[in-house]
C-alpha cells in the first residue's frame, strides 16, 4: 500500500555531526549552506538539552515542512 508523501528525515549514524549529515543528505548543495539549511529545519534539537547536539534517536529533517500546517 502506497503511503502519502511525508516530510523526509533521517537519523544520525554513529559519530556523525551536522556537516556529515549535510554531506550525506544534501550532497548537491554548498556545504555551509547545507548545514545552515539543516539547522533551520531542525530547531527542535536546539530547544532542548544538550542544545544542538545530535543524539542517536533524534529525528533530523532533511527538507522544510511540506505544506503550511496552519
Amino acid at each position: 500500500m502506497e503511503l502519502s508523501r511525508a516530510r523526509s528525515f533521517t537519523t544520525a549514524r554513529p559519530g556523525e555531526e551536522w556537516a556529515d549529515i549535510a554531506r550525506r543528505t544534501l550532497a548537491d548543495q554548498d556545504p555551509g549552506q547545507a548545514v545552515e539549511a539543516l539547522q533551520s529545519w531542525n530547531l527542535h534539537l536546539f530547544l532542548r538539552q544538550p542544545r544542538g547536539r545530535i543524539l542517536g534517536c533524534d529525528v533530523i529533517f532533511t527538507e522544510p515542512p511540506l505544506t503550511d500546517a496552519g
Binding site: 537519523t11 549514524r13 544538550p50 542517536g56
Partner: peptide, 12 residues
C-alpha cells in the same frame, strides 16, 4: 542533571 536518559543515545 537535565541530561538525556541513556535510551536517547541509541542509534537506529
Amino acid at each position: 542533571r537535565l541530561q538525556p536518559v541513556p535510551s536517547r543515545y541509541a542509534h537506529a
